[in-house]
């Protein structure tokens, strides 16, 4: 449906007064690619989208779409569409008029507008809602209208700012899957902003992790998860979070680097004869398909993903085991990954 575009950001910087929101972010998104930008609240994700959309001007750096520098172009000249976190539906217009607005503004012929609105409404299941106003829609329906308003123009680049964050948990997984199918179907270029690492992992071709306005790591979900570039990235992705501790806790020689072990790489055994490190159970959280077990050892807490059948009372002695090759190391001072030979 859309013609995809290539989006390149070069050393983008933006401050609000004395507050730096972005400090030199470079990123390139291939045509048809979905890049997720993740990071905690306030790290500059929305600012990044504003700069790409042309709603704000960067203090420094270049935005390029299909090789053309668009820094001096207004939003309307950039041919990007955006889904806002708040959805930003026009409350005084019906769904139909909301969907038609970008086309009406572009001066498309009436008949074409009607056809495109119908098409998008059918795609997103909005047909029965066309004559309602946003105020009479549920959260999920509003989200679809916002998406539809972005789709209707068939732009080169889609920008989505935490599109699922206002949906309840049950709805979120369904819409997430639909978004992934939609992206596959459209083959358009997506920049998808979220603070939810699970969304990024499931949707993205590549993930850009932002921290305090700087790019911490850019890579495929597999790279981000399997070889995090910094301790921050390691902690940010994965549920439950990675165990980041001093090496002594895992019985490894002390050194300038902390060690990190994913919860699925830590084995907990109730058999005292199993050997390994001694620890006590601190908390047991059954998740249904598996059980998260938090143990205490040497004053630190470690989480392990165990079988669903794991049962133990708090305080019970257990043994820990792990494959040393699965241990990540991060320099304690810089947080950078330390490769071990």
């Amino acid at each position: 449906m859309s013609v995809a575009a290539r989006l390149e950001l070069e050393s983008l910087a933006k401050s609000y007064g004395a507050v730096p929101a972005l400090r030199g972010v470079s990123l390139s998104v291939g045509d048809g690619e979905l890049v997720a930008v993740v990071g905690p609240s306030g790290c500059g994700k929305s600012t990044l989208l504003s700069l790409v959309a042309g709603l704000e001007a960067p203090d420094a750096g270049v935005v390029r779409i299909d090789g053309r520098v668009v820094n001096d172009l207004s939003p309307r000249e950039r041919d990007v569409a955006m889904v806002f976190q708040s959805y930003a539906l026009y409350p005084h217009m019906t769904v139909r008029r909301n969907l038609a607005f970008p086309l009406a503004v572009a001066g498309r012929p009436r008949r074409e507008i009607a056809a495109r609105v119908e098409e998008v409404a059918a795609l997103l299941g909005l047909a029965p809602l066309l004559d309602r106003r946003p105020g009479a829609l549920s959260g999920g329906q509003r989200q679809r209208v916002a998406l539809g308003r972005a789709l209707v123009r068939r732009p080169k680049v889609f920008l989505l700012d935490e599109p699922l964050s206002n949906l309840d948990a049950a709805l979120r997984l369904g819409v997430r899957a639909e978004l992934k199918k939609l992206h596959e179907r459209l083959g358009a270029t997506f920049v998808y902003v979220t603070h939810d690492q699970a969304e990024a992992m499931t949707l993205a071709d590549r993930i850009a992790v932002l921290r305090d306005g700087a790019l911490e790591q850019l890579g495929t979900p597999r790279e981000i998860y399997g070889a995090p570039a910094t301790a921050f990235v390691a902690r940010f992705v994965g549920t439950p979070p990675v165990n980041l501790v001093a090496p002594e806790v895992l019985g490894l020689p002390a050194g300038p680097a902390d060690v990190a072990l994913r919860p699925e790489d830590l084995r907990v055994s109730r058999d005292a004869a199993a050997g390994g490190l001694e620890a006590q159970v601190w908390l047991v959280e059954p998740m249904g398909s598996e059980t998260w077990v938090t143990v205490e050892r040497a004053g630190a807490r470690l989480v392990a993903r165990c079988d669903a059948g794991f049962e133990a009372a708090p305080g019970a002695p257990v043994r820990l085991a792990f494959d040393p090759r699965r241990v990540h190391r991060f320099d304690r001072a810089t947080g950078r990954r330390v490769e071990t030979g």
Partner: peptide, 22 residues
């Protein structure tokens, strides 16, 4: 809400159109 005018601008509206329609 400020986002409405921002959304309209991304939708391609000129400043005048944002004023008139939003």
């Amino acid at each position: 809400p400020e986002d409405l005018a921002r959304a309209a601008r991304v939708d391609g509206a000129s400043a005048l159109r944002v004023f008139r329609s939003i």
